[in-house]
Every structure is written in C-alpha cells, then in structure tokens.
Design a protein around this nucleic acid. Structure first.
Lengths: 238, 238
DNA sequence: TAGTGGTCTAGACCACTAT
DNA sequence: TAGTGGTCTAGACCACTAG
C-alpha cells in the first residue's frame, strides 16, 4: 500500500468517525508531515484525494476544513453498482437473474459500444427487488473475451466484485447518461410498475478497463418513484 | 496563470482539435518536460487534470492515451449551469424571469440549506424555453448577504457569470440530487407539460463558496422528454 | 534493455490568513 | 509576523511495457 493512500484512508476514517468533525480543521500539512513521517508532497497527495472525494475544502492561509457530508446525504457517486448502493444505504433487497446467455453483438449495440458486429457477448438481465417489488431492471452486456465465464451465482451477487477480486480486472472509468424513457411492454412485464407509470429513468453506462477498452455496457432501468442519484461536483475553473 | 494550467489548456486544445486524436499517445512526460521547459511534477499536474476531466488514461510503461470523448457525447458534468449547457450544445433557447424578489427563509428551506429561519434570500424563478416551449423551470434561492443586488437583466443571462466575473465570488463545489417527482398545479401552470405527463425530473443542488458556506439552493425541474444528464466517473479504488 | 509512468523526498519561494 | 496552503524544482528509485 502506498503511503499517500494509507494517509488518505486514515484521515477518511477519522473524518467519518468524527474524530475530525465537520467545520473543524485537519492538522496542518506541516503537522501531518511529522505525524506520518513523510514528505510534504505525500501529505498533499492524500489531502487531494480527500478534496476530490468531497471530504475537505482547503483554504490558503487557513487550513483544511472538514465538510459536512450529511447535508443531502453522502454522495454515492462515481462508478457505484447496485450491490454497493444497497450495502451503503442498508436497503434490504433481492436480485433475480432473468436471463444469462451469450449473444452476438447487434448493429444497435455496435453503434453504442463500438464492438464489432456479431462478436460474442454475455447478456445478463437482473431484477432488483426492494420490499418484494421489482423497482430496478439491470441489463448488462459484457465482452466474453474479457469475461470468459459468468456463473449464475456470481451474477446474483456483485459482478464487479467478481470481476475485480476474482478475475483481476482493472476497472478504470465510465461514461454515464441519465434520461427518462417511455415504458414498453418488456418493462411492464419484467418490472412491478404502477399502472399509471408511463416512464422510467434509465442510466446507461459504458465501462472501461485500465487499457481503455470498453468491456461493459449497462442499462439500469428505475421505476420513477425509486430513482435517486446523488453527486458531488467541484466547479471546473481555469 | 500557473504553468500547469497553461500546459493543461494547451494539451486540452490540442486534443479537442485532434492534433492528438483519440487512441493516440501524448508526448511522454520527459518530452513534455522539454517541450514546456518545466519540471516533471509540473507536467504530471497538468496530466492529472486531463485525466480527471476524462481526456486521457495513463498507463505505466506505455504513456498517456487520448480517450474518445465522443462516444456518449462529451460529459457536461460537474457544476454546469443552463447557460453553459446551451452554448455547449448549440441549443437555441430563451429565458423568462417569472419571479424575482426577496423572501424570508422558511422552515422547509432551513431544513434543506441550514440557513437561519427568516433570514433574507433572493427567490428567482425562471422559465427555460426551447423551441418556444417551457421545458425547464429553474428555482433559485440565494443568500442576500452574499448577493446584495440581483438585477433582472443579470437573471435573464447567466447568474453564475455575474457572480464570478462581476461580484468576484469563488464558487467551489456543489452537492446534487436527481429524482423524479410528481407534477403539481404550479408546474402545470408554469411549464408546457404534455397533458399525460405525471412526473418531472428535479435536480436539486446546494452550491458552496470557497469558504465552505452554502450560498445557493437550486431546483431545476425538467420535462421528462427533455431531460438528459451526462457524466464521466472514475472508479474509486483504494 | 530502454523508455514509460508511479511514488517519494528535500528544499525553495510565493500568496494568503490570522493576530 | 508566524503559520498556512499553492506552486515549482531536481533528483532518486521503482514497476511496468515494449522490442
């Protein structure tokens, strides 16, 4: 483990446990240098991670101010999967695998992902239940070159956990798009929609590995009343 | 202007103009050191900005790979206002100020923002028209301590431009929440909704200054068929 | 093996904040 | 004025990629 990551994790834990409460100041960079016995740049790397994650705001001449992360709830943003979401939010839920098979890339999928037409991919469709109601439908398309095996029991659990910890994949980044789309018959069949629901919210993601190859395309389809997306954003200056 | 920002802007422009096209490599760090006559850490700061903005992916032993930013469109994420959005996307549009007056902070607004009850704030309501239809309704609440004057002609334009360039405010970050909400009579009156529309998408934002004070609360209410949110996210490791 | 990016150091000077 | 964070440098060693 790198020094700056260790410092980040230590400070993060101390912020979350309110050892450093909101509106207080972290120890100064010079104090942190002595505390962790590292150079200033190393301390600053750790502080930058905290800053980007929305934990602190730095002020020249003042110090690093701990932010109040409980205002609109703490952002579960970035590249977060359903499994992480439910464990973070303590929601009791259940996953049912509806479809799990290999298909050939269609023209439509090719246009979205850039994958060659007819290339082999896994198609995975899962129902996400909260309180016995299917409120989210997840459709995943995964390059079978990258994911040779996709056992049903892994799909029932977190596929990201399987990819990263068992297959050793290095997931790097994703592009996401959120829109509201009309309901069709397939969704009406597979989800517990209200009779008057005419729309769902769809989160489309292209997920990339460290080597910049897109290996996954996902559509996460949410019932309107159960959709919520939270984000922390810094103003882009320059 | 800092050196690393200049390098960032120069490289960004060269990526956007496809002088460095997608899937190509940027000059190596050593080459950039010579090109810009700076130290390695300065080059690396600029490269990190590009990385965080989603322009490049770095690979040890290989180099900095230019990403294809046109897959799902380029993310207009972060803290972007309607004005910036329309100029980025070349949408012809029109803004009408519906309400602009000072009010006292209600209990409900206090619970959201933490502002003292009865404190004076600006309430600004604007209709956003695209093709003569009101498809977005923006409600802004602004601390009058921070914004003493709010002329109507500024409200018609970009209030962020006014805040940053005329009032010299330092906008730092925001917390956002996106949900789908039922339509009420007020929205039906103020927006050109379809008769069958039962829901809208609401983006709620708390916006903070460099000194960590929240000075703005915004609700941006979108007609379902005109809502689109795009984001670039890196996987949080560690 | 040569070249790439990743981490870390020690030190310098500057701008800002408090008092 | 003392202390804070912001920028920048020069150099070191390491891990990874490629030919």
């Amino acid at each position: 483990m790198n020094k700056f990551k260790e410092i980040f994790l230590d400070l993060e834990q101390k912020i979350l446990s309110e050892e450093y409460p909101p509106h207080s100041l972290l120890p100064s960079e010079n104090q942190l240098i002595k505390l962790y016995d590292v150079s200033r740049e190393t301390v600053r790397k750790a502080l930058n991670l905290l800053r980007n994650a929305g934990y602190i705001q730095k002020k020249q001449g003042k110090g690093s101010i701990v932010l109040d992360i409980h205002r609109l709830d703490f952002p579960i943003s970035g590249l977060t999967s359903f499994k992480e979401l439910q464990s973070n939010q303590h929601i009791s839920s259940q996953t049912t695998v509806v479809e799990l098979r290999k298909i050939a890339v269609s023209i439509k999928l090719h246009e979205i992902t850039g994958w060659p037409v007819a290339k082999e991919v896994w198609k995975l469709v899962r129902q996400r239940k909260i309180n016995e109601e299917v409120v989210i439908l997840d459709k995943d398309y995964l390059l079978s070159d990258v994911i040779p095996q996709l056992p049903k029991e892994k799909a029932q659990d977190s596929i990201y956990d399987y990819f990263e910890n068992e297959l050793g994949l290095d997931i790097a980044y994703a592009q996401k798009e959120i829109t509201a789309d009309p309901v069709n018959k397939e969704l009406r069949d597979l989800m517990d929609l209200h009779p008057e629901d005419r729309h769902v919210v769809t989160v489309r993601s292209l997920v990339y590995l460290e080597d910049t190859h897109c290996f996954e395309y996902t559509e996460s389809i949410h019932r309107l009343d159960k959709f919520r997306f939270v984000d922390f954003a810094r103003r882009r200056k320059i």
